[in-house]
């Protein structure tokens, strides 16, 4: 599937990251799975930003999903979760564009103090809808040309991004952002070796 599921803008503080805005498109999941899927995507988003250095790009593959992350030098971060068939280059181009637009609208001195409820940036939802078809990104050629492919670090699992000694299972168990039901959902999905399919 060529699909974008979630796009978020975060601020990466010295110890943890705060979500400033996020948009989701989860219609392709079953009704009863959406809530857990959304929580889980939020969890992965936050976890990955905290493990990405400033001024770096990473793309992490997890089963049939891809998680693209870009942390700028000024610690504004963007995360895009897509299907692994969505062109990676376009995904990173989109992140650049989203962060550019965000910083043009929300002044940078306020980032460390803001949280999700205080930010209005509905352009993110519009972008998520528009760029479901990656062909739409053809117009962003300027950004695409500036993007240096070789600087994107690729990982084949989420575990590869975690710090030494960290385990995804432990992080999930400890997480406060995940409800009991989502944790059970994660365990079941892991057991059947299929994310989001029972």
């Amino acid at each position: 599937m060529v699909k974008l599921f979630a796009m978020s803008v975060l601020y990466k503080g010295p110890n943890d990251s705060t979500l400033l805005k996020s948009a989701f498109e989860l219609q392709s999941f079953g009704y009863f799975q959406r809530k857990s899927v959304q929580e889980f995507m939020g969890f992965v988003t936050k976890t990955i930003v905290e493990r990405t250095a400033s001024a770096a790009r990473q793309s992490v593959k997890e089963k049939e999903y891809m998680c693209h992350v870009y942390v700028r030098a000024d610690n504004l971060a963007g995360v895009l979760i897509s299907d692994d068939e969505y062109p990676h280059r376009v995904a990173h181009t989109l992140l650049t564009k989203a962060l550019d637009e965000f910083s043009a609208k929300v002044p940078s001195h306020s980032w460390p103090k803001l949280n999700e409820t205080q930010v209005t940036f509905n352009e993110l939802n519009a972008m998520l809808a528009k760029y479901q078809n990656p062909k739409e990104a053809d117009a962003m050629t300027k950004i695409q040309q500036d993007l240096d492919d070789t600087k994107i670090i690729l990982h084949s699992t989420i575990e590869a991004v975690l710090e030494r000694g960290e385990k995804l299972d432990d992080l999930v168990a400890k997480s406060e952002g995940l409800s009991m039901q989502s944790k059970a959902f994660y365990k079941t999905a892991k057991k059947t070796n299929a994310c989001c399919r029972m």
């Binding site: 009863f32 799975q33 039901q181 059970a184 029972m198």
Partner: peptide
């Protein structure tokens, strides 16, 4: 009626 699914609840 649109959908049927299992809801994970141990």
């Amino acid at each position: 009626l649109k959908e049927f699914d299992l809801v994970i609840q141990p």
